[in-house]
Design a protein around this nucleic acid. Structure first.
Lengths: 202, 202
DNA sequence: TGGAATTTATAACGAACGATATAGATATAT
DNA sequence: ATATATCTATATCGTTCGTTATAAATTCCA
């Protein structure tokens, strides 16, 4: 927005990098579990710098949520939209959900929204609206993919795109949750063929 | 176990009542959100009494989880098992899930396990095993209800009871989650007919 | 009635939390 | 060069947290 050189000492850190680092901490430890010490260390900045740049802890948390929505970091949805064959796309979505929910990477499991932010809904002010909007957005994206197949004639005209999109979202929520509780990827995979047929059933 | 009068000053509170009161606090505020002050006030006892009777905060939390499993306080599952007609039973399960997830009662929404304990999985030591066992148990109860219908001949012999039980569980998880994020009961009800057919589809 | 045992209430503990006051460092503008 | 503005680092603030000494109160046993 404003690229002109500003007066005063310049930032010693990249705001975006710091935000992503903070997100990973929240992701791995949860909102309450992530202390300011954890955050400042991971972000590579000191307390006062954090407060000056992002406000307080809660504001930082909300900013990581907005950032996540922007960068579109949710692998399963991306996989779903990229695969042209709809059945493979649905299977790919579920497979991606399961693998990300059971293969921890840096302590971060599943989707940031599904496995971290969702646990602070109703607890941290400002999260509910963002979560509701995120769910709405995801539901819509999933439904639009089905609508596309209806236009192509692959899916029948009366296919309930919106309902099946919501169903996929709820399935993700369930898989992520089971993954956190200790379920193995293999045991979760037992369900996917039945669920693929289910999602696409007329 | 031991009803003989014990020496010393007797308890001034009922252990079971105190445990249920503690559960309601955790249910409404979450594990981290519930302070010892909240707990002692709701339980009607003082700090030292709490520690003497239940151990520390975490031990108290785990005991409320065990207690919940014992009293079988999950309304949707009870509704599911009580209704003889299987289609009505499935519909009743989902309806019960939705109403309990969107009609807050004393700040407690949904199922204690689904809406509170599930958010502390991976965060509080001892919760994971209990949650995994609880999910297993619920999956099994749901599946057994379907098996019963297979014996009666209402459902075909190749009906995948276990998979559909899991599916119902994941749907509950999704509904409870959406309810916490602000979804209304009416909007959630839009899905149920599609889902009832889905759960019972061969 | 006097001790032993147990629960109670008051008060306060150390630790960790989130958040800041202060001062020093580094840039631009005049 | 001086002034001004912005960022950084150290150190510390006041709370709140979960937890626990301490001592009074209440019961049973001898």
């Amino acid at each position: 927005m404003n690229d002109t050189k500003r007066i005063g000492r310049p930032r010693g850190f990249d705001e975006n990098d710091a935000l992503m680092a903070a997100m990973n901490v929240f992701w791995a430890k949860g909102y309450d579990g992530a202390s300011m010490k954890d955050l400042t260390r991971a972000m590579g900045i000191s307390g006062p710098s954090l407060y000056a740049a992002f406000g307080d802890k809660r504001a930082l948390y909300l900013k990581t949520i907005d950032r996540y929505a922007d960068v579109d970091a949710c692998a399963p949805i991306v996989a779903f939209e990229a695969e042209p064959d709809i059945e493979k796309a649905v299977r790919g979505f579920l497979t991606s959900v399961i693998s990300s929910a059971t293969d921890p990477e840096d302590g971060t499991r599943g989707c940031f929204l599904a496995s971290c932010v969702s646990t602070s809904v109703g607890q941290v002010e400002g999260v509910d609206e963002r979560m509701e909007k995120a769910i709405d957005g995801t539901d819509l994206r999933l439904a639009q993919r089905f609508d596309l197949e209806k236009q192509r004639g692959v899916l029948p005209a009366d296919f309930p795109s919106r309902l099946r999109g919501r169903l996929m979202y709820d399935m993700r929520q369930g898989f992520v949750f089971r993954g956190r509780a200790g379920w193995s990827g293999e045991s979760l995979m037992e369900d996917i063929e039945d669920r693929v047929q289910m999602i696409l059933a007329i």
